[in-house]
């Protein structure tokens, strides 16, 4: 039998990256730290009731009264359980990760939709990102970015990005051929076709991808906590390691509430576009 040492090869690559691109990783680290930190600071320094009021207003405006009431009760409950600050830290982490995932993922989806070649390369990479156990890439993330919030964000981005890439690609490919053809027939440049026709028509599908990305980011918070990211994940981890069932459930419950609120609001974004764009 042939004996292949793939693990050894990966180690060499990782070493090489760490040695040669240290500066780049430091720069990424600096940017992510300041974004997450800034967001955290904003969310925690605004009075709790003001933040809750803002979320309730947003839920009411985007979705309706039911979700607004749920948001009010849910967020008050989180505060009552004493997890407010942790929740805001988690929210900062999730929003940052989702933002990075979208900034990278949407253009990648667009590229994949426009070129079969890009799609062919991107698909197996996305498959890997989604199915490779997260613990495996936590280690290189730590090697590149050391412990803390930043490797947490990076790992979350890796895990959460695939749906928005896939759904952007799908959404653009699903735009009716004759509409695209019409735009070309009127002399539109490829860029005009993308901006004026494909993206607006693919928007509901892209927003479904955004929603999925945010949900996946939220599901990564516990794993990210293992490499030092703070927030609710940290509390769940504490509950597990200390066999403190109550604490674990409370923090888990807070994650669920945050997830439902974010899901309903982002879902309504996609659906809202759908109704006005009929």
């Amino acid at each position: 039998m042939i004996d292949l040492d793939i693990g050894g090869v990966v180690e060499v690559i990782i070493d090489w990256l760490t040695n040669n691109f240290g500066g780049l990783f430091d720069a990424i680290s600096a940017v992510l730290t300041s974004v997450v930190g800034g967001l955290e600071w904003v969310l925690t320094s605004i009075p709790v009731l003001v933040v809750i009021a803002l979320f309730v207003a947003l839920a009411w405006w985007m979705v309706g009264r039911g979700v607004a009431v749920f948001t009010l009760i849910g967020l008050l409950l989180i505060d009552a359980m004493g997890f407010w600050d942790d929740t805001m830290v988690t929210l900062a982490l999730v929003l940052t990760s989702a933002l990075v995932a979208l900034v990278l993922g949407i253009p990648l989806g667009v590229l994949a939709a426009r070129s079969k070649g890009v799609e062919r390369v991107v698909r197996p990479i996305l498959d890997t990102m989604q199915t490779m156990p997260a613990f495996v890439y936590l280690i290189p993330a730590v090697l590149f970015f050391s412990l803390g919030t930043v490797p947490g964000v990076v790992a979350t981005v890796v895990f959460a990005m695939p749906p928005v890439v896939r759904l952007t690609n799908l959404g653009i490919r699903q735009v009716r051929e004759d509409v695209v053809e019409a735009a070309h027939a009127f002399g539109a440049t490829p860029r005009q076709v993308l901006i004026k026709v494909q993206l607006p028509l693919a928007l509901p599908t892209i927003l479904a991808g955004v929603n999925q990305t945010i949900m996946l980011a939220l599901s990564m918070v516990v794993i990210a906590a293992m490499i030092g990211a703070g927030g609710l994940g940290q509390q769940v981890l504490k509950g597990i390691t200390q066999l403190n069932v109550g604490l674990g459930f409370e923090a888990g419950f807070a994650i669920v509430i945050l997830a439902i609120v974010l899901d309903r609001i982002t879902q309504a974004m996609g659906a809202g576009r759908k109704t006005t764009h009929k």
Binding site: R176, D178, G187
Partner: peptide, 27 residues
Amino acid sequence: MNMVFQHFGLLPHRSVCDNVAFGLEIQ
């Protein structure tokens, strides 16, 4: 040369006016 399509090829997210103006918008 402009074209009229069998299945119209209109932009469903735009008004009649914005659809008609599409060619001019491109220009």
